[in-house]
Design a protein around this nucleic acid. Structure first.
Length: 314
DNA sequence: TACTCGTGGGT
DNA sequence: TACCCAAGAGT
């Protein structure tokens, strides 16, 4: 057809929903957490792992994780350090700690079932606005604005006509996402997944492939000649020489070791003692590392998220 | 609000 | 090579 037939009522995003969802049905990746058997727990685990980590690196860890801990209660029974160890090299290991804490909370407060209400999801450790909406939408088919970096970029281009969205999510973006949300629950949840996938596969940050885009004909940015990004430079991340790098090296040693590690083994991963000590202190403060008497360190057996550390008086 | 928090692959 | 980027959360 060349023109949409007249409808009794139109919603703002109607001309976007149909082509994007049709594109999604034809081109969506076959990812394990999109299978029905993944269930809400599988969806939730995938969302934690996908926070700032690419799909390809998540896949093997996800499979291992769900095999080992098929239900929240299975993970809740483990020491948090085991979650950190199984997290491997996904990065941002505090996510592993929070996922473990979320499993404990789900077991204690929700009878072992991932809650379906947005507010209850939001109350779990490691779940913010995006993840709560994503789990409610993808796992339970609810109608929520799921505003991740991919969707923000798609909206910035198609609607606003700029190459990149603002550095931090704005109220205007949330309002736009709500306005573009399809009316029906089913269509809204499909739209959430489809618009994310479009940003991940076609409307990418660099080397976007507009010739494959189902809504290229109505993209404000493309129609404006794809102007370059204006405004403040997008915040880059330096890494070499930072505390994050030192923390990563320290934690890698502890992940590889089944037994507690002596201070000397940690000392040799970084030669600058002040920064090294600061990084280790930070890991301990975050609950990612547990200090033992005698200058030994190990991954944590107790959780900083669920049980306040009880200090036995000497 | 702006900053911290890992890791590795692509360009 | 050095930089850029990847389904954010917490403070």
């Amino acid at each position: 057809m060349t023109a949409p037939t007249e409808s009794t009522q139109t919603t703002p995003g109607e001309t976007l929903h149909t082509p994007v969802i049709a594109w999604f049905d034809a081109h969506a990746r076959d990812l394990p957490w999109r299978h029905p058997e993944a269930g809400p727990w599988g969806v939730m685990v995938s969302e934690f792992m996908l926070q700032q980590t690419p799909v390809n690196r998540v896949l093997p860890v996800y499979e291992h994780w769900l095999t080992r801990w098929p239900r929240p209660a299975d993970l809740a029974k483990e020491a948090p350090g085991e979650a950190v160890r199984a997290w491997g090299r996904l990065g941002y290991p505090r996510r592993a700690l929070r996922l473990h804490g979320a499993a404990v909370a789900i077991t204690e407060r929700h009878g072992g079932d991932v809650p379906s209400e947005h507010a209850q999801l939001l109350a779990l450790p490691g779940i913010g606005e995006y993840t709560a909406a994503a789990v409610a939408s993808f796992a339970y088919g609810q109608r929520h604005a799921v505003l991740d970096t991919n969707v923000r970029r798609v909206f910035a281009r198609v609607v606003t006509g700029v190459r990149y969205p603002p550095n931090a999510t704005t109220a205007a973006e949330r309002k736009l996402a709500r306005a573009l949300l399809p009316e029906s629950e089913r269509t809204a949840s499909r739209w959430a997944a489809a618009s994310m996938e479009l940003g991940a596969l076609v409307c990418t940050a660099k080397n976007e492939t507009c010739h494959s885009c189902p809504i290229a004909g109505q993209c404000a940015w493309r129609l404006a000649g794809k102007p370059e990004h204006e405004g403040p430079p997008r915040r880059g991340q330096t890494y070499a020489g930072t505390d994050r790098q030192v923390r990563g090296k320290l934690l890698a040693v502890l992940r590889e070791s089944i037994t507690a590690v002596p201070q000397a083994a940690l000392d040799h991963v970084w030669d600058e003692p002040v920064q090294r000590a600061r990084a280790l202190d930070g890991l301990v403060a975050d609950g990612l590392v547990e200090p033992l008497p005698g200058g030994l360190y190990r991954l944590p057996l107790t959780s900083p998220l669920t049980s306040p550390p009880t200090q036995p008086s000497t």
